[in-house]
Structures are given as structure tokens and as C-alpha cells.
Computed example of a mutant assay.
Amino acid sequence: MTPASSAKPDRRPPYQHAADELRREIMAGRYKPGDQLPPYRELQERFGVANMTARSALNVLRDEGLIYTIQGRGSFVADYEGKGVDYTPPAWYLRNSASAPAKVDVAIGPSGEGESGSPDAAGPSLVEVLTALRDEIRALSADHQELRQEVEELKRAQQQDPNS
């Protein structure tokens, strides 16, 4: 058994762990644009998660524009270069992961095309603010989902033992 880490435990849902790992592999070039990602069953086995959890991980990547899905065929890596994909790993991820990918520094310009971003001395750009808001909404959504599951478990327990 490995000793407990002094760092705060990562309480993210499993689908976010899987999405981060797949994103890291896409950004590193293991999966290139047009490549098919493994099917849900392989992702389930690889990450030790349920089918819906694997689907949720791919949904995150689809929402970010990194992949697209063709019904009945599978999920494929999108040609995201130059299309304004701006993924910044959340701060907790950067703190807790030595192998975290660097920010993909592509901002959406006035024409809607990707442009190399540069730090703005006046403060965060609109893209940075929206990215931070998106990440916060995802974290809140994950917390909400956890709470819903806890409520369902409590309801089931109460139905099994009505004298409580």
C-alpha cells in the first residue's frame, strides 16, 4: 500500500479523470485528427468505470471541440488546430499534476479564427473568463450529480427500512 499523499485528495468525478487522460493523449499527438478513439467498452476497462461514465468523459471532450461522434461508428479526433480551441487546465489540476499539459494558447479572434494568444497586461481576456466560468459550471454540475446520487441512495435505503 502506498503512503497517503500530503496533497489534498482529488475529488473530481471519474469521468473528469478519464477526460483529462484522453485530452492529454490527444494534445500529445497519440491520437491525431481523424483517428478513432477506443470504443466505450475499452474505455470502461481501461479506466475501470461504468459505460455512462465513459460516455460522460467523451461528452466533455466533444463539448470542448476536441472530438466528434458519428452515431453507430464511434468517436473521432476533430481537426481542432486553428479552430479556437482554448483549453486551460483548471488551477487545481495544474497544482496536483506534474504531468499536466501546458495551456493550448489559442484565442478566438474577431473573425472567429484561432490566433496565437498573448498575455494581456490589462487582465484576463474574455476567453479566459469564459473558460474559467465553464470549468466552474462543470465542477458545480459534478457536485450536483454527486448529491443527486446520494439522495437516490438515501431514498433506496429508506424504502428498504421504512422504520427509520
Rank of each mutant, 00 (worst) to 15 (best):
107 A>C: 12
18 A>W: 05
25 E>F: 02
112 G>N: 05
83 K>P: 01
52 M>W: 12
16 Q>C: 02
37 L>F: 07
52 M>V: 12
133 L>Q: 09
43 L>T: 08
71 Q>A: 06
25 E>G: 07
155 K>I: 12
59 N>T: 14
29 G>L: 07
102 A>T: 13
4 A>L: 13
30 R>M: 15
88 T>P: 01
78 A>F: 08
158 Q>Y: 07
144 H>C: 10
36 Q>K: 13
16 Q>N: 02
86 D>R: 13
118 S>T: 15
27 M>K: 05
88 T>D: 01
142 A>N: 06
161 D>Q: 15
35 D>R: 03
101 P>I: 13
55 R>T: 11
134 R>M: 09
63 D>G: 10
4 A>N: 06
38 P>Q: 14
90 P>T: 07
23 R>T: 14
7 A>H: 05
68 Y>V: 02
43 L>Y: 11
5 S>V: 03
49 V>I: 15
75 S>V: 01
139 A>H: 13
6 S>H: 08
8 K>W: 06
91 A>T: 15
85 V>P: 02
103 K>S: 14
72 G>H: 02
26 I>M: 06
147 L>T: 11
88 T>M: 07
66 L>Q: 05
123 G>W: 02
39 P>W: 00
148 R>N: 04
143 D>I: 01
99 S>Y: 11
118 S>P: 03
138 R>Q: 10
128 E>W: 06
45 E>C: 04
126 L>R: 15
53 T>V: 15
56 S>N: 15
111 S>W: 04
12 R>Q: 03
59 N>I: 09
72 G>L: 03
144 H>Q: 12
28 A>Q: 14
102 A>R: 14
67 I>P: 03
16 Q>Y: 00
57 A>T: 00
19 A>E: 14
114 G>W: 00
72 G>S: 03
96 N>F: 03
18 A>S: 11
66 L>V: 09
143 D>P: 06
10 D>C: 09
103 K>V: 15
94 L>M: 04
126 L>E: 10
46 R>I: 09
157 A>T: 10
113 E>H: 00
98 A>H: 00
68 Y>R: 00
78 A>T: 07
164 S>K: 07
161 D>I: 11
118 S>A: 10
152 E>T: 07
43 L>S: 02
36 Q>F: 01
16 Q>A: 01
113 E>V: 06
34 G>H: 08
158 Q>F: 07
64 E>A: 11
44 Q>N: 08
24 R>T: 10
22 L>P: 05
38 P>R: 15
159 Q>W: 06
108 I>F: 04
20 D>Y: 09
71 Q>L: 04
26 I>D: 14
37 L>T: 11
20 D>N: 12
47 F>R: 02
22 L>G: 12
29 G>R: 02
57 A>L: 08
29 G>F: 02
162 P>A: 01
65 G>T: 08
89 P>R: 04
22 L>S: 08
16 Q>E: 10
96 N>E: 09
40 Y>Q: 15
89 P>E: 05
137 I>W: 13
21 E>L: 15
70 I>F: 07
89 P>C: 01
131 T>A: 14
147 L>A: 04
96 N>I: 10
